[in-house]
Design a protein around this nucleic acid. Sequence first.
DNA 1: AATTAATTGTTGCATTTGCAACAATTCTGT
DNA 2: ACAGAATTGTTGCAAATGCAACAATTAATT
Lengths: 212, 212
Amino acid sequence: MNKSSLFDGINEKDLKKMFKCFDTRIIEYKKDTTVISNMAKNNLIGVIMEGEAVLVRYDYNGNRTILEHLEEGSVFGGIFLSSNFNEISVHTTSYSKIVMFDFDHIPKKCNKNCDYHTVLINNMLSTLAEKLQKLNERIEILTKKSTREKLLEYFENTGRRLGRKTFTLPMSYTDLADYFGVDRSALMRELKYLKDDGFIETNKKRITIINY
Amino acid sequence: MNKSSLFDGINEKDLKKMFKCFDTRIIEYKKDTTVISNMAKNNLIGVIMEGEAVLVRYDYNGNRTILEHLEEGSVFGGIFLSSNFNEISVHTTSYSKIVMFDFDHIPKKCNKNCDYHTVLINNMLSTLAEKLQKLNERIEILTKKSTREKLLEYFENTGRRLGRKTFTLPMSYTDLADYFGVDRSALMRELKYLKDDGFIETNKKRITIINY
DNA sequence: AATTAATTGTTGCATTTGCAACAATTCTGT
DNA sequence: ACAGAATTGTTGCAAATGCAACAATTAATT
């Protein structure tokens, strides 16, 4: 059950103790349920113990954008977001079991001074640092001026991370276009040009980077 | 001297103790000095105690990009960056006094169990959260499709934060274009269109949002 | 297995943007 | 106070991109 890096190194028994001490609620949700709305304004931390969900945002037009896919172990909460986001909520995309507690518990020195507390704080630091890394990587891509550069940078990053030249995209092209902040059809077009120019080969969502 | 939010709530005396315990180096730099290069690869945390600096990045073409302006109190370090950034360094833009120590000291339980330690960890959590907020806000802008939308979003955010419709840009238009990942001349052009269309008024770097 | 929903792939066209180049202005250092 | 550097402001033009619209394919639901 303990798949989240936030709880890494905390054993089952301590975790139970902690959940009690933190006044944690573990809630089970059916598919397609709104877990919390208006998230940016509160101080809750949530961890997906089982299932999947999405972090979504509604803009003033009512358009829904997926900000993040949350899977087993993912951590979410207002603390990770910009405070001028308005309507942010979490929706389950499958049956899910989610733990929620108040962020304030983390820095507070527990009166029982539980030893898992130190571990949890370290994990929280790592979790925040990881999120920062991801955001920085995305910014790096978003600031590239052309869609071509965005694609190449993204492919190189993915290739480097996996240590190989061929890989399957972890998301749909529709989502990739959103990730790049770019029109989907424009992305497909540029993808074709990249193939024509011999930079990559593709087969559905399988990408191969060509060494030139 | 203690102007950084990282050291908030830690008094002068404790700070000195802490610096000793953390094996901290306080170094003074002349203007235009490289403080550290290849930063993404190490684990150092730096805090600007006095002066100003920039966080810069050299890409494979040797082009220099300013990633962040660091002022008194700013915190920098590999932990805040994406690991696949290559050449990141810090350059002073004025005489500066900078504190550096290893990040590993922060989560580690100090053997003397100094009470400022808890405070420091809390501050570190806030610092990380603040950085996340800033990055999220920038991503929000970067994913807008047009320069016009980017400008409007940015102006609205700034106006909301300051609680007024008129304000002075905190950076040059050149830097703003970089922040948006957009060509500078294209930004100037769009700015003119926004004026023509009555969305804003400008006088040098003074912007007024027009209620329509 | 059949129906519906979602994603992919493609294209024409208008608009936006980047790029290059230059003059004007403001800022900085000596 | 001056010289050089940096920033601002503008423009023409080519290239890239967004938008709309649609068919084809694949995935999901009942």
